Simulated scan of single mutants.
Amino acid sequence: MSVVLVINSGSSSFKYQLIAVDEGSREHEVLASGLVERIGEPTGAARHTTPAGTSEIERRIVDHTDGFGVMTEAFREYGPDLDDATVAAVGHRVVHGGKRFFAPTVITAGVEQDIDELGALAPLHNPPNLEGIRAARRVFPDVPHVAVFDTAFHQTLPPEAYTYAIDAGIAEKHRVRRYGFHGTSHKFVSESAAEFLDRPLAELRTIVLHLGNGASACAVRGGVSIETSMGMTPLEGLVMGTRSGDLDPAVLFHLHRQAGMDIAELDTLLNRRSGLLGLTGTGDMRDVQSAADSGDETAAAALAVYRHRLRSYIGSYIAHLGGVDVIAFTAGVGENNAQLRAETLDGLAHFGILVDADRNAARSRDTRIISTDDSAVTVLVVPTNEELEIARQTLSVS
């Protein structure tokens, strides 16, 4: 097996996993995982987990480089020893690759510069991704570092799917188009579904529903993304924890004129104060579902909006795919909220979609079928594993 260190870096934190991957199969083993957070605050925190247990520390963590020092010290003290593990490569999640990056890419100074420049398209994500890359390259200078882009899987979208109907010159100059996100997850889940069903990936029409705090849908034909709900940014599409998803653009003009809101306030409204949070006061689906189950009408109405948007995309993607063979739910909400799955697909028997109540209600961490035996469409729950997908893609080019 080859060992890959996978890094997912944010502005004040980063997650990591040390994964041993069998390149000849889908076998793997997570050797360690962890989280370094509250970077730059008076008191930082770090957690390191191995099969033997979890260790935690609190101390000031000045910057990402200091954070990587905390991580490597945890490996030295609690294992596994990184020298003994012989790390083959370091894989980095990068949110936005624009049109430039359509595959996992070995990181060079030029690639760093491109990621930095693409920060204009993802100002909340690419800069911290890049900070983590630079810190990791300083700490691990002797192994290849590979960027795996959230947008890459969607580079196969046809022009009619990625083009917005605005002035073509302006769109070209300012790179305005649909890019799509969560591509690493959509790729992993669509391929895992085919493998689980023992059916050729090339023959399947699959709708993947990645439902977490961030949420997106993807139509996959033969393993290729042909349509996805997120757009130029991760704001478009489904209702999310704190993001609005689809919205009439004129709402922004109206709020500017009538409420005096400036660009920064509108950005905060749509990205941080909308979605389930805006509708109910909490962005956590578990809290919203619990409140609705207890008779809270506001929470119930919010869930109806959430499901309505989701069903709209399912119907649209059935049309684009010319039918559907598999619907796969994944991510935190998709994997764990059986009631949402059932109510979203209720009444879609005319599409050949029938959910088995007992199968759907059964809790499991494994990939499983939740549709009935006579359902024309196979409905699955497929736990996503973006870190494993990043590790695999990293090894493919390192």
Rank of each mutant, 00 (worst) to 15 (best):
R243F: 06
R205V: 12
R273P: 00
L211H: 03
G237I: 03
R257N: 12
M232F: 12
D267W: 04
T228E: 03
G241K: 03
R243L: 03
I226Y: 05
L235M: 11
A259N: 02
I207A: 02
Q258L: 14
T242D: 07
E227D: 15
I263P: 00
C218L: 12
G223N: 01
R273L: 11
S244H: 01
L266C: 13
A250D: 08
A202T: 09
G212P: 02
S229E: 07
R221M: 15
A202Q: 00
V224M: 11
V220F: 04
G241E: 07
H254N: 09
N271K: 12
M232I: 07
M232W: 06
A259S: 11
G237Q: 05
R272Y: 06
R243C: 05
L255M: 12
L238P: 05
R243Q: 07
L270E: 08
P234I: 00
R273Q: 14
A219Q: 03
D262I: 14
G275S: 03
G214E: 04
A219V: 08
L255R: 08
D248H: 14
S229Y: 04
S274T: 03
H254S: 11
G245C: 13
S225V: 05
L269M: 15
G245V: 14
T268G: 12
V208S: 05
G212E: 02
N271V: 09
T268D: 15
A217E: 07
G241Y: 04
A250E: 08
P234V: 02
V220Y: 01
R243T: 06
A217Q: 00
D246T: 06
R205T: 09
C218T: 06
G260F: 10
L209D: 02
T206G: 05
L255S: 09
R257A: 14
N271C: 10
D248K: 15
A264Y: 11
D248T: 12
D267Y: 09
D248I: 12
A217T: 03
S274L: 04
R205D: 02
L235P: 01
L269R: 12
N213L: 07
L255W: 08
E236A: 15
P249H: 13
L270P: 05
F253E: 00
V251Q: 12
L209C: 04
L270G: 07
L255K: 07
S229V: 10
P234G: 13
G241W: 03
R272M: 13
T242W: 15
L235D: 00
G275T: 01
G260A: 13
L252D: 05
L270W: 08
S225P: 00
L238M: 08
V239D: 01
Q258N: 12
G260D: 14
L204T: 10
L209A: 01
T233N: 11
G245R: 12
G214Q: 03
G222I: 10
F253R: 15
H210Y: 03
R221V: 06
S274A: 14
A250M: 14
V239S: 02
G231T: 14
H210L: 03
G222F: 10
S244Y: 01
P234E: 08
G214R: 04
A217K: 00
H210F: 02
G223F: 09
A264Q: 14
T242K: 15
R243H: 07
L235F: 05
S216H: 03
V251N: 13
